[in-house]
């Protein structure tokens, strides 16, 4: 498919939609920002797109818990449409608050045979161990080779900016399944690729998990912001480097390439 269409979902308090749209367009997609109220009125645009992105921000002010209210809207109004999108081979990406939404709506981790629902949510994302919001850059090591958004052997450098980014699992068996079934999309590591404590792992996530993919490998959620590193001058010390590669583009380029080659 040549004309790749993406939708960046807006809602009250979402605030990374413009730069996410820009990143998708840099990668060659046509991206549209659409308010969730419009999709609830008429979900047809979802049928016309191949990539759906839940961008970062503070949807509904993090009321009740981060991502919760938007997740509730998704469950009760768009669940079937989104399930159909995934079943049809389309891609879904959740960044930061968008990742929280995907987790709280049960779309991630999308363990095999579990489907997505509120019941028995297997993982969650909660307050950073530091107890506060922080903006800092982290290295990410891919943890699986079956997520279409990432190059399995490429370590990338991206910023995180959140107060609730600590990934936790309901119990140890869930964590074991995330690992053994290839759901761990990214881990926080240092420049050499080793895991470690704060600030290498900025929020205290279990097993340093920074992002998850579902059983299909076509849904990705991550706390770091790939849309904030699409130009070399966004690197925090680009003035020391020769044209650093814009690591965030990996995610958008791979998504667009996947759609072009497979749909």
């Amino acid at each position: 498919m040549e004309n790749v269409q993406a939708i960046v979902l807006r809602a009250a308090g979402v605030n990374c939609d413009v730069e996410t749209q820009y990143a998708l367009e840099l990668a060659g997609a046509r991206a549209e920002r659409i308010h969730i109220n419009r999709l609830i009125e008429d979900p047809a645009p979802l049928d016309r797109c191949q990539i759906l992105v839940f961008p970062g921000g503070f949807s509904y002010g993090d009321d009740v818990a981060a991502g919760k209210i938007l997740a509730n809207q998704v469950i009760y109004h768009l669940a079937e449409t989104i399930r159909r999108c995934i079943d049809d081979g389309k891609l879904v990406l959740g960044i930061c608050n968008g990742f929280q939404v995907l987790v709280k709506a049960g779309i991630l981790p999308g363990l095999a045979q579990m489907g997505f629902s509120f019941e028995n949510q297997p993982v969650s994302i909660t307050d950073n161990d530091s107890g506060k919001y922080e903006d800092r850059w982290v290295y990410l090591q891919p943890g699986t080779d079956r997520c279409v958004f990432l190059d399995a052997d490429r370590r990338i450098y991206l910023p995180v900016a959140h107060g609730e980014g600590k990934l936790v699992t309901r119990d140890a068996s869930i964590l074991e399944r995330l690992r053994s079934e290839g759901h761990v999309a990214f881990r926080y590591v240092d420049a050499q690729g080793d895991v470690g404590d704060f600030p290498i792992n900025p929020n205290g996530s279990v097993d340093s998990i920074a992002g998850l993919t579902d059983a299909t490998g076509r849904v990705l959620g991550l706390m770091p912001h790939p849309e904030r590193f699409v130009h070399s001058t966004q690197h925090p010390h680009w003035t020391r480097l020769e044209e650093p590669q814009s690591d965030g583009m990996m995610i958008f380029d791979n998504a667009v390439r996947y759609v072009r080659e497979n749909m």
């Binding site: 990374c16 413009v18 730069e19 970062g56 903006d135 966004q234 020391r240």
Partner: peptide
């Protein structure tokens, strides 16, 4: 660090550097 100084994607020289 408690402020999001990168949202909107336009950051070039950040408040912390080096």
């Amino acid at each position: 660090r408690q402020y999001d100084h990168e949202v909107q994607g336009g950051s070039v020289i950040k408040p912390l550097t080096g």
